[in-house]
Computed example of a mutant assay.
Amino acid sequence: MRYLFLLLCLPLCTKAQSPFERKYAEGETYRYRMVTDYHQNGQWKSTTTAICELKVVKDSAGIPYDEIRWLSQRTISAKDTTDGSAEALAVKPYRISLHPSGSLHIPPIGQPGMTGAITDFNTFFVAVSHQSGAGKLLKKGDSINKASPVTGDFSNGKTILKGQDCLQIIAQMTASNARSVEIKTSFLPPAQTCLQYFADDLAVPVAGDTVNNFQMVMPAGPGQYIVQAGREYFIIHSTVRKKDGKISSAVMVNDLKLRMKINCGENYTGCQREMPWNIYRQVRLELQ
C-alpha cells in the first residue's frame, strides 16, 4: 500500500522546476547594456547608457552569485554629453543571485550618480526572480499575485536623502517556446499603502483615488528640501533563455505622477511653492 502511494505521489508531489531556472557556470563573465530614456513633464530630457560586467562566483555556502562591476555610464541631453564612467568604475563590486537560496539585496550606494543604474538593474532581476513569484510560473498563462505589497528604499544619503516606494507585484508568463519564455512583471500601487509618510500631507492622493505609493526628499540648500510624493508604477517585459535562465532582453516602462514641494523647511513644511511633476522613463536591458 505504501509502495502504491509512492508511485501515485511521485509525479504529483515532486516540486515542479521553473522552465527558466537560472543555471550558473562558475567563472563565466558576461555583460549587459542598459539604456534609459528620461522624460519630464512630457518632454525628453536625456538618454543614459550604462554597461556592467558580471562574473559568476560562489559564496562560502556554495551558493552561486553574479558579482557586478560597472564599467561605464554616459548621458546625452539636449545641451551636452556627460561621461560618468569614473563614477561607474568607482562602484564597489557587489553580488546578487537568482538562485532560490541567493539574495538580490544591494549594498548602500556610495556613488550617487549611479543610483538609477544600480536600482534599475536590480529591478530587472527581481522581476524574474523567486522573490517576485516569477519562479513559480511554469507555463504560458500562469500568473502570480504577491500576497502583500513590498517597500523599496532607494535613498543614497546625498542626492536622495530619503526615498521609498510601495508596490504590489504581479508576475505573468505571456509566451513560451523552445528557446525562451516571456515574463510580464507589474509593480503597481497597492489598494492600501505600506508607507509611513514623511509628512501628513504627502498622503493626499495626486492620481484620483489611487494611494500615493512614492515619496522622496532631496536637498535644496542649507536647511531646505525638495519633497516629491505621488503615484508610481512600472511594468517590465522580460525575455529569459531556457538553456541558462539569463535575461536576454527586457524593457521597463516607469511612470510617476507626483506633487513636488520646493524649498521646504524643517519637517518638510513652510514650502515656498508646489507644482505637478510627471516623470516617464523607458529602460532597455540587453545581454551583450
Rank of each mutant, 00 (worst) to 15 (best):
P219A: 06
G135L: 03
D80R: 05
L256V: 15
R259C: 07
V128D: 02
R241C: 00
L10H: 01
T185S: 06
L10M: 05
F198D: 10
E53N: 01
A78S: 09
F125Y: 02
Q111F: 13
L258K: 04
C9S: 04
L4H: 02
E232T: 05
L104A: 08
R179G: 09
R22N: 10
E26C: 03
P108H: 13
K242M: 02
E67I: 07
T210D: 08
Q164Y: 05
Q288V: 02
N278W: 12
V283D: 00
S132L: 13
E274T: 12
P219H: 09
I109M: 15
G27L: 03
D165T: 04
R22Q: 09
G116I: 05
K139F: 07
A199Y: 06
L161V: 13
N212V: 15
G116S: 09
C13H: 04
V150G: 03
R2C: 00
N213H: 10
T82Y: 10
D209N: 10
G62S: 11
G135Y: 05
P107E: 13
N177G: 11
A88T: 13
P19M: 08
I169K: 10
G62R: 11
Y233N: 11
L7W: 04
V204I: 14
I51H: 02
G42K: 10
V56A: 04
Y65D: 01
D83H: 08
G110Q: 15
R69M: 07
T210A: 13
I169Q: 12
Q111N: 14
Q40V: 14
V126H: 06
A147D: 07
L7I: 03
M1G: 00
H99M: 01
R31Y: 00
A86V: 12
H105S: 11
C194V: 03
S46Q: 08
D201K: 12
Y233C: 09
L7D: 02
